[in-house]
Each structure stands twice: as structure tokens, then as C-alpha cells.
Amino acid sequence: MSGGLPEAVQADLEELSRRRTRFVWPLLAAALLYYFAVLGALAYLPDFVGARVVGSINVAYVLAVSMFVVTFAVAVIYARWSRRSSDPLAARINEALVAAGYDPEAAAAEAEREDAG
């Protein structure tokens, strides 16, 4: 418990945390796995990455450029997801806490006293 957060806020916070865990970590893992797979291919599969695709452009060059595309894509996907899924919830938590006059420092101090007692 975050030092006596209002119940509705606590529920929103858990929901926000859950949404991020479900969406953001898998997205990060997928992007980084792709990057490490590319690194691995560049390091250990010379025949594959040396193969020509068009003209002098080989697989290695295509893979390098694809990392830029992946990064752009992740940024766009995450921005859209945040606007729809996490920003409204964060805003609701903020509004509720302001309305309740919640003081995080006082609440933390209280929680520590409870813990100690």
C-alpha cells in the first residue's frame, strides 16, 4: 500500500502498472531481441549478410537500415499507445489525488511509522 492512497486511486495505479507491464516490456523485449539477432547475424553469419540484394546493396546494409525502421516504428507505436492507454489513467490518478489533497511526503512518513510500529 502506498501509505493510505484512496482506494480508487490504488486501483487505477495497479491498472496502469499492469497495462505497462503487459505492453511496454514485451515491446522492448521484441525490439531488443531483433537488434541482438541482427548483431549475431552480422558477427557470425558472414555468408548470409554478404549476399547481394539489389546491385551492391547486401543483406548487411538492409539489416542496418532496418534497425532505423524498427526504432521509428517503436516510437510511433508507443506514442499512440500512451496517448490512448496510459496518459488518461495517469491524468485521472493526478486529478483524484489533487482533489483529495493527498500529500505524498506525509503519507510516506506515516507508512514508515506504521512499518516501524
Binding site: 500500500m1 501509505g3 495505479l13 496502469l16 502498472s17 495517469a90 490518478i93 505524498p104 514508515e112
Partner: peptide
Amino acid sequence: ERLSGSRFEALRLRALSGFG
């Protein structure tokens, strides 16, 4: 560490929602 545990909740609230 007791402090680390209880402050973790405060950090989570602040980091996720921006409150405070």
C-alpha cells in the same frame, strides 16, 4: 531494507502518474 520497500510504492506512484 524497510525504507527501500515502503519508498518503492511512493516511487512507483510518482514515476507512473507524475504526482508530486
